[in-house]
Design a binder for these strands. Structure first.
Lengths: 142, 142
DNA sequence: CCCATAATGAGAACGATTACCAATCGCTGT
DNA sequence: ACAGCGATTGGTAATCGTTCTCATTATGGG
């Protein structure tokens, strides 16, 4: 019986430490904005890293499953990714530049929990995201 | 200059009262669950209404723009639609059967507004949805 | 150093949604 | 009732993000 091989840098899915995964991890660590897989792919190529699109999608998905990145769906169906902290939190996202601030909200958690109870729902999760214009983009927009 | 033709049953996009739109409106009025366009299409055919898929998508989209239906994206990228009340509200959705309850949350609105102010964000909107198992599905799941 | 096998990547496949565009049909004026 | 205009429809092709396939490559334990 396999005695649970030592957990590595990435989550369950990412066993081996490849050049591609290092590049992806480094790239994500370098920005605070939510970014699409396509965008990450372009950025990596632009910086000289040779990584396949499929690998970008696969790795990003694995990291999301492992809770290392947060995901967000845009109105036009794209999935955006971003490195994230370990605690439960929500996001305040600039809809212009993508810059994101992690925020928490105990009151929201309580409200959600109560609403669920009031209606007899069980196993409840919630999606709470705020979108707006960050200070810089607000200024730029006049 | 056209003096703004009388506003009809549907929103800005839906001018004429066609058989297809009536069928769609009736169908939506008959259920409380969030449903996909494909599902609506299948349901309509099953009930004998002959409506093209493109028309279902177009009309649903128009109704969403007009604020007559709410939309929701599933994790696998499908857009779900549901009739909705006129006031601002959120949803408590059963992730098993789709049954939905409209809920409001003044505290959430306040929290969102404050978080935005604290970080200097402007023009802020929010997405708040709760997912769980409704009483019936909770029971069914054992 | 070797090898089993996890990982990669180019391109095909996919699924939801939208675009096209010729044929229809609702509406308004007559 | 009727005609005409133009909104609407719908079959299908096209889009677009994402996933799958599978032959090839490369990681890391032994």
């Amino acid at each position: 019986m396999p005695t649970e091989t030592a957990p590595r840098a990435f989550g369950e899915k990412g066993r081996r430490d490849t050049r591609q995964r290092r590049a992806l991890r480094d790239h994500l660590a370098a920005t605070d904005a939510f970014t699409s897989a396509q965008q990450v792919y372009d950025d990596l190529r632009a910086s000289g890293d040779r990584v396949g699109l499929a690998t970008v999608y696969r790795t990003l998905q694995a990291m999301a499953d492992a809770g290392e990145v947060d995901t967000l769906r845009t109105d036009d169906g794209e999935t955006l990714f971003r490195k994230c902290g370990p605690r439960h939190h929500h996001h305040l996202v600039c809809r212009s530049c993508g810059v994101t601030i992690e925020i928490d909200g105990p009151s929201v958690e309580r409200w959600a929990s109560k609403a669920a109870d009031d209606h007899g729902f069980s196993d409840v999760t919630h999606v709470v995201e705020l979108f707006g214009l960050c200070p810089a983009c607000t200024k730029a927009a006049g």
